[in-house]
Nucleic acid binder design. Structure first.
Lengths: 260, 260
DNA sequence: CACTATTTGTCCGTATGTATG
DNA sequence: TCATACATACGGACAAATAGT
């Protein structure tokens, strides 16, 4: 019995492509890593041998070895001569997730449990696409903040980029790292009364990949949040990118409630 | 005035990496493509020249050219000697989206506006990871259905794979393509009273990529939906994968409602 | 009309990375 | 480990098309 067929479907075994930009060894690495971090291959589980990978995926043994070496170099597996490689990774117990209903109430909790590091704050004219969304006048400057959110163990899981208008004071690194931006907006006379959010997926840019410990091109969960004040003016535009293994959005729906 | 700095932030201009697996020309291609399909660079907009890209991103002109040629080969831009390249892509007008609150009520509407094509129905023992989630007894068979959802123009935007227990009758291709699965479950004595959903992102497998007109490895928005009956038994497990450019989840929150 | 600056197209040579047997 | 083939990335050089003076 081959270990390989327990782990991968026939379609996956035939899924490696040389036409695309990603090297074969890295495609193999990606498939195996997904199995390991998702817990399908738990700690100490045996991995396929180089020969099995080579014939199963129709690649050379050197290429299979290179994929395995990459996993080993990240500490995800242990390799020793004469033995099958085995998983040396304990799937994270508690992933972060955020409920979508009751979400704002959860923001305060989130900010206690996690840490934000501000990368950059500037006050400037927004780029054309952002200006178009914010409907700013031609010379109106906005506050542009980029930041990363880390969990209690210091593991990064979210990258934020925000554009905020009408802030006179209070947008400092210190304040943004330790207070809620909504509170600072309120102090500047902007009470947020309505929020619109869009969830989708995108590829991590090299920058975001580096910050979230991903590889460029890996999928990220994206959220765009538009915050409007009582007059329906868009005050804040927030673009979030989440590490998909470290953060999920969760919803709890009761049928009666939502079928009505 | 350089076009380049209107399009990319300084951080992005310094974000290309040779260490990773993705070639420079493909990273550049990705950045530009994102600007084009998102509409930041609208139809007929001028693009940076090869020389500007070369100096701005600190890459060779050949590499910049290769990224541009890749865009041209996909018909996203037009290139001609002596002229700046320009965008030859019209951002899609109406995207699909689904509100998360009031979602079930929207399902009926969705099923009128779109079409489902069932790829496969079988009744069998679930694979180990699915069995563990469903907590099925050892020999309990479940209905396994894979299907694709198309919009009115026949454009695919979602792939679904579901595992459903306790269905005696009614799970036919005809029924699943034209009725709501919840209704069929109800006729089999399973009233869904509680739903849990998780949203994240993943890479498209070659199969899903082909069905959704993506490339293998492209990001997809993923949704896992667990549907429980009145006794808290998990009846249905649904895995969805959405084309990120064709489908978003949308939420509308009022601050009073959710800050309470 | 010529002249020039701009921009893309093509080619060379070289070094390094990827993949095979 | 070696030899081989192809892809990636660089810098340089020149040709060809475009637009403006």
């Amino acid at each position: 019995m081959s270990v390989l067929e327990d782990i991968f479907t026939p379609a996956e075994l035939a899924s490696l492509r040389t036409e695309g930009p990603i090297p074969l060894y890295h495609q193999l690495y990606g498939l195996l890593k997904q199995r390991i971090v998702s817990g399908v291959l738990g700690a100490d589980a045996s991995l396929p041998t180089e020969a099995e990978l080579s014939s199963g995926f129709s690649i050379s043994r050197i290429t299979a070895k290179r994929g395995m070496d990459l996993l080993a170099s990240e500490g995800l597996i242990v390799r020793r001569r004469g033995r099958r490689s085995s998983v040396a990774y304990q799937p994270k117990g508690a992933e972060h997730d955020a409920p979508l209903v009751g979400m704002l109430a959860r923001l305060a909790e989130m900010s206690r449990e996690t840490k934000v590091k501000v990368l950059n704050i500037d006050h400037r004219l927004p780029p054309p696409n952002i200006a178009a969304e914010l409907v700013t006048s031609e010379h109106e400057q906005v506050h542009h903040v980029t930041r990363v959110r880390y969990d209690q163990q210091g593991i990064p899981f979210a990258y934020y980029e925000s554009w905020t208008r009408g802030i006179e004071q209070g947008f400092t690194v210190e304040a943004i790292e330790h207070r809620q931006r909504f509170d600072i907006m309120a102090e500047n006379g902007h009470r947020i009364s309505h929020i619109e959010q869009f969830l989708s997926a995108a590829s991590a840019s090299p920058l975001v990949a580096e910050l979230l410990e991903l590889h460029a091109g890996d999928p990220v969960l994206t959220l765009v949040r538009q915050s409007f004040d009582e007059d329906g003016v868009l005050i804040d535009l927030l673009h979030c990118q989440y590490h998909p293994d470290r953060f999920h959005y969760r919803m709890n729906l009761s049928a009666e409630e939502y079928l009505a």
